[in-house]
């Protein structure tokens, strides 16, 4: 898939994703060793984007499983379409009646119906959820398990099982084994500690806020129409705001939004009134906004 770490870096770049050396190394290893990657880091540094870009770059389909509290196997793996099964049995009542009409005894009738089991427990009545989709896919895919920390520990244990064998057993249908081992990316916002087992199984990647140089590159790439001077000013300001001990420091996606809005407003450079009126794009909490406002002079200083 990839020949070298440099190739990963280059191809991600071509797909408009600035991957640091560390990120590309981990992606390279994941592809080589067939291991899932667990990506951690603050919100909005491009964790989900990494998986999307990976699917782009490798031209594999992306299957996404968004985790939330209360997510269970039925929503993640597969579910029988009970309603459809019921409907079919209702509609086919007569046919079933015919089938057992001449059965001499009750046990005989039961075994005749049992013989037709497959008709109702087949893929026709199964709705596959993301995990099963990823395993049954005919072409290799990228599986994104987003915000795994939102799901419960039990689900994590279950996921671990799937990720280590890439096979699932459905009691009525037997074991389904993956045709291709999918590239798996798990993301976590660190709302809680993940289990050791899962961490052991995965390659671990911690994405922090980018360095000023990288961020400048990202902004140039994502907002190509931005004047160079403004881009530099934006990056410098954002970096300073991040150092202010805010409740939620601005993420990369927010600085991109901000840069975009400044371009729309036709700004050439940052001046205090402009910054103040667009600050809500960058900082989302009332207290944080106040703090930035108070330090505005420092933030805008060259």
């Amino acid at each position: 898939m990839f020949e070298s770490v440099e190739e990963v870096q280059q191809r991600f770049r071509d797909a408009r994703y600035i991957a640091s050396r560390r990120i590309s190394t981990v992606v390279f290893l994941a592809a080589r060793m067939g291991r899932p990657v667990l990506v951690e880091g603050p919100a909005g540094v491009g964790k989900t984007e990494l998986a999307k870009t990976l699917s782009d770059v490798t031209s594999r389909g992306l299957i996404r499983l968004q985790c939330y509290e209360g997510l269970d196997e039925g929503k993640a793996l597969y579910e029988w379409k009970y309603a459809k099964q019921l409907l079919y049995t209702q509609l086919l009542r007569e046919r079933i009646g015919e089938l057992i009409a001449d059965a001499p005894s009750l046990p005989e009738a039961v075994s005749r119906i049992a013989g037709q089991d497959d008709a109702f427990f087949s893929y026709r009545f199964l709705s596959p959820r993301p995990l099963l989709q990823a395993i049954r896919a005919d072409d290799p895919v990228v599986l994104l398990v987003d915000e795994i920390d939102k799901a419960e520990p039990e689900f994590e244990a279950f996921l671990l099982e799937v990720l280590s064998d890439f096979q699932v057993s459905i009691p009525e249908l037997g074991t389904v084994k993956a045709k291709h081992v999918p590239l798996v990316v798990l993301t976590s916002n660190n709302a809680r500690e993940l289990s050791d087992g899962l961490k052991r199984r995965c390659l671990h990647l911690f994405i922090d806020f980018p360095t000023p140089a990288d961020e400048l590159e990202i902004i140039r790439l994502k907002v190509p129409e931005i004047p160079e001077r403004l881009a530099r000013a934006v990056v410098a300001a954002v970096q300073k705001i991040r150092a202010l001990e805010l409740r939620k420091p601005p993420s990369v996606s927010e600085s991109i939004d901000w840069a975009r809005s400044l371009v729309i407003l036709n700004a050439r450079e940052l001046d205090p009134t402009l910054v103040e009126s667009t600050l809500t794009l960058l900082v989302k909490y009332e207290k944080d906004i106040e703090r930035v406002r108070g330090a505005l002079e420092k933030v805008l200083a060259e």
């Binding site: 560390r22 190394t25 390279f28 290893l29 961490k199 390659l203």
Partner: peptide, 25 residues
């Protein structure tokens, strides 16, 4: 993993060890 990436680049080598060994930020 370190056999995969080799030892030529120190930074890559370091990221490799970090990704496989360090699981807590």
């Amino acid at each position: 993993a370190s056999a995969e990436v080799g030892l030529t680049d120190r930074e890559t080598f370091k990221s490799t060890l970090a990704a496989t060994l360090v699981k807590e930020a």
